[in-house]
Structure formats: C-alpha cells, structure tokens
C-alpha cells in the first residue's frame, strides 16, 4: 500500500510523488467548462490497457493451471503477498509480457505519459505495452 503524504504544505516542492498514479484524475476528471478550449494533448500519450483482469482464453486456463501446480496447497495458508521476491516472481511470470495477460499483467491500468521534448522519439515507437517499471525509471530520470 502506498500512501502519498500530503503535498499541501509543500506547494512548490515535492509534488512529483505519485504523479503517475493520479494522472488519470488530472487528465480525465476535474471540471470542464464548455466555453474553454483544452490545450492540445498532442505530445502526451496515454496508454490505457483496458482489459478484463482475467481474460478467458486457452492460454489463461493453462497458465492458471500451471500456477496452481506450483502452489503449496498443503499449507493452505496464503503467503504474505508483500514479500518483494514474490512481487518479482509474479512480474517475471510472463503474464505481463503477453498481450492476453491475466491478473498481474492485465491488472495494470497502464496509463503512461510521455511528455514532449526529449521523449518524442521514444514515443513514436508506440510500443504495444508500456510497462510500469519502465515508466517508473523514466519518472526518476525526469525528476532531475
């Protein structure tokens, strides 16, 4: 769980934490006044992977069955999902990289923002799926 601390007292500084996670609010919600025009969002690319969390398909069925095979069913207890190595394992397990990703992959509502300027070239490549880890590292770079 991530709780982004209050940014209200800081004002000019420190507002970058969690910008990625609230982008959809800044860009898609908020008041719209009909008489105003909206700044062109050219140069900003929001990739939204809108898929059901679990996609019913042969691939998914097999993947879940395999995942079930790897589970320790004897213990019956849920492992602590907060363990970092578990997070890594799920990330690596392949769901995220496939177009029909289930769960861990598809659960990401990927909305990535490529700001203009230096990101332009990368943006044109229009990758099929923006990975969160990628955007995180970019975010760090841009904080500089």
């Amino acid at each position: 769980m991530t709780v982004v601390p209050a940014q209200q007292s800081s004002g000019s500084r420190g507002g970058s934490t969690g910008l990625y996670d609230v982008l959809e609010l800044i860009l898609d919600r908020g008041l719209v006044i009909d008489a105003f025009v909206r700044v062109s969002l050219v140069g900003i690319e929001i990739l939204k992977i809108d898929v059901r969390v679990v996609v019913a398909s042969v691939d998914t069925y097999l993947r879940f069955a395999e995942a079930c095979n790897r589970l320790d069913l004897e213990s019956g207890n849920s492992k602590d999902p907060g363990l970092p190595d578990l997070v890594g394992e799920i990330t690596e397990s392949g769901a995220r990289g496939k177009s029909k990703g289930a769960l861990a992959g598809a659960a990401q509502s990927v909305s990535d923002v490529f700001s203009g300027g230096r990101d332009d070239e990368e943006e044109k490549e229009s990758r099929p799926r923006a990975r969160r880890s990628t955007s995180s590292s970019r975010r760090k770079e841009e904080q500089e």
């Binding site: 940014q7 609230v22 008041l31 006044i33």
Partner: peptide
C-alpha cells in the same frame, strides 16, 4: 496539481481538468 493543492490549503477549490484555456 501543485497550484490546486496550495489553493486547497486556503479553502475549498474545484479543480479543472488539466488543460482548460480561455
């Protein structure tokens, strides 16, 4: 985001969607 957050410390504010220009 920062302008709205700062304004919020002074009282209620209705945020516009990013990019509204008159």
């Amino acid at each position: 985001q920062n302008v709205l957050s700062e304004a919020g410390t002074a009282g209620a504010v209705l945020p516009l969607r990013f990019g509204g220009m008159s």
